[in-house]
């Protein structure tokens, strides 16, 4: 949807309302939805994501209806040289190097991706928003400490740092005296430690300008406590950027989890994850194309759908954007 046409349409709607002398009150949510639903691509992406979520929730019934249990091995599906066989009517996406059903494993892999994306995103956003608001509101030494900490985190190579944390925690009983265990927990910790800085920095910037607004001054003058001002006055004004940037870091989190699993420090086998499937598929990519094509395609489509949704949400919440 072009910004110019959008403006014209909004004006026309305004003119109609004027003619009819009937002004309809709309909540911000209704305004957002009215804009968002005109973005066909974003709607398509949303549809795909809903479908994916359903697939992940019903991975069990779906795999028993159209495939086989995810960890069951079918050695008769490997040929004499141990090469897996390709897609067939009973194994829709073929089998992997152990004779497991790739279709079921792709379905179960969706669970891992979405689970990590959801938990890691919620945690990074929560930490980023709170620390960002505190830094922006109090300024001074609090801001210095938080901002410098963000600078330092950003001085690390992201993937290597996540790898380092994940591999340091994958040995023995996990790390920090066994608090963080290898597997899903480690992956989430590694992602959150890095990704909250991204949100934190943006929120801090927004709060720095918000705190100078008159309504904050009014709240302060009427004797509101800092905590009330931060959560009751400032936070509601940050809803739009929080939604936009949350949607935009979901695909990054999915990619990061997949990369960690690809490198062998992510989800612990035998649980299926797309990154780990691609890793297993790497040595046999030329004999078993289905083994990298289906998990890889699923990963690509999922990340793409979240990116498209993010762009759509951003455009709908902020009509000034031109991209």
């Amino acid at each position: 949807m072009s910004a110019v046409r959008e403006q014209e349409e909004l004006q026309r709607e305004g003119a109609d309302a004027f003619v009819q002398l009937e002004i309809v009150g709309r909540t911000p949510w209704q305004l957002f939805w009215a804009r968002f639903k005109r973005d066909k691509i974003a709607i398509l992406a949303l549809g795909f994501i809903v479908l994916l979520v359903l697939c992940a929730i019903f991975a069990g019934p779906l795999s028993s209806a159209f495939g086989h249990p995810p960890n069951a091995q079918y050695p008769n599906k490997l040929d004499a040289f141990g090469t897996p066989t390709g897609p067939s009517s009973s194994f829709l996406f073929g089998v992997d190097q152990l004779g497991r059903d790739v279709f079921s494993r792709v379905l179960y892999g969706a669970q891992v991706s979405l689970e990590v994306a959801l938990i890691a995103t919620v945690l990074s956003v929560a930490i980023g928003v709170v620390l960002g608001m505190v830094a922006g509101y109090y300024r001074g030494w609090v801001d210095t400490i938080i901002s410098r900490f963000i600078d330092i985190t950003l001085a690390f190579p992201i993937l290597l740092l996540a790898l380092g944390i994940a591999s340091a925690c994958s040995l023995g009983n996990g790390c920090v005296a066994g608090l963080v265990h290898p597997g899903l927990g480690t992956v989430i910790v590694a992602i959150v430690v890095i990704n909250w800085t991204y949100i934190g920095r943006i929120i801090r910037g927004q709060v720095l300008s918000l705190r100078e607004k008159e309504f904050i001054e009014a709240a302060r003058a009427s004797g509101a406590r800092a905590r009330t001002i931060i959560f009751r006055e400032i936070l509601p004004n940050l809803v739009a950027p929080i939604i936009v940037y949350s949607t935009l870091i979901i695909p990054q989190n999915i990619l990061l989890e997949a990369a960690l699993s690809y490198l062998g420090v992510g989800i612990t086998p035998p649980r299926a994850s797309w990154g780990q499937m691609l890793s297993d598929a790497t040595p046999i990519y030329n004999t078993a194309w289905w083994y990298f094509a289906f998990p890889g395609g699923a990963l690509l489509l999922t990340v793409l759908a979240f990116n498209l949704l993010g762009d759509g949400v951003r455009d709908a919440l902020d009509p000034r954007t031109t991209t």
């Binding site: 890793s279 990519y285 030329n286 990298f292 890889g296 690509l300």
Partner: peptide, 25 residues
């Protein structure tokens, strides 16, 4: 561009090898 951003680099790599590599492509 959006598709390229969304694709994991190792998936692009495997695809490139599968399509264009000497001997295996």
């Amino acid at each position: 561009a959006l598709v390229a951003i969304s694709a994991p680099v190792y998936f692009i790599g495997l695809l490139a090898l599968f399509l264009f590599a000497n001997g295996t492509g």
